[in-house]
Amino acid sequence: MSVLAIEAAGPGVTLQDGGRKGYLRFGITAAGPMDPLMFATANRAVGNPLDATAIEVSTGGLTVTAPEGPLGLALVSGGFRATLDGEALPPACALTLEPGQTLTVRAGPTGAWGYLAVAGRLDVAPVLGATATHTRSGLGGLDGRGLRAGDRLGVSEARVGDGAPQRLLAPWLDRDPSRIRVVLGPQDDYFSGDQVAAFLAGPWTVSPRGDRMACFLEGTPLTHAKGHDIVSDGVAMGAIQVPGNGLPIILMADRQSTGGYPKIATVIGPDLGRLAQAQGGTRIAFANVSVAEAVAARRAEAEALRGEVPREPMLRTDFPAEFLLGLNLVGGVTDGRDGIAKVA
């Protein structure tokens, strides 16, 4: 059997699949990818089912090898810096990792999450029907924890790609993080009209303290018209709750299944990923859309994922000189497994 060996992994690198389904009623969160569209794109690029298990790479970075035999891989990220044996790769690429080669992925100028999909099947035992890792409850993935150096992931039915690395062209991932579409509610009636308007207009700044559970926003606090306590009810991914301090919290993949703060609006499914990719300090505003508009956006997304992910050969001239130079300059600080191991 082929093996994907984890040589180094920063905090927050986990195995995810399409998410745990059917257990929300028992308090089990779905987990699953923070950026569902990018995750699905990575799986599509290697010919896997769209919800197959893949590695979600955090800004903590990841280094992998293929000690037992070549592996076909797709790496899809917003702006992460990836290298194959030190040679720069595009942030979205398909490649074959040969024994002896090392693939390294590190945080870059943009993006908060990337996805590494393996052509074939990562052999991870599902728990409650899914492999998605929910570290807070120690569920799924490898023993409910993030990946770390020394982990070896078996790969069944491994397939290899053809030759040199190729750039993946997925224009649907060019998303503007500054404008996030929402459907108002379910508790927008806990806020006066001018507060709903203030919420939409923002601007809000994404706090750096966000994680897989929630995205915290900073800005002018909102005020509640009917108090900030409600009797707990269900929480969808993307629900924007406004607690007593008036600063919105957007509940993400590892959210709790129920909550007791009014939810002024809900981020539409197609915009969850662009929000998840916003690094701390990003300024955002919201746009109120109808359910019908949100469904149309969802349909367009499904359409984009229907076909193959286009690819083109990678040329050295793809990379501007400053970019290559930048890699060399930071190489001594963050390159290699030692730099990543320190934060693991």
């Binding site: 459907v183 379910p186 539409i268």
Partner: peptide, 17 residues
Amino acid sequence: ILDAGEAALVVEFGTRV
């Protein structure tokens, strides 16, 4: 019937326990 985004509905029968 309240919308929680475009992929979830909240069917609310009351506001109390």
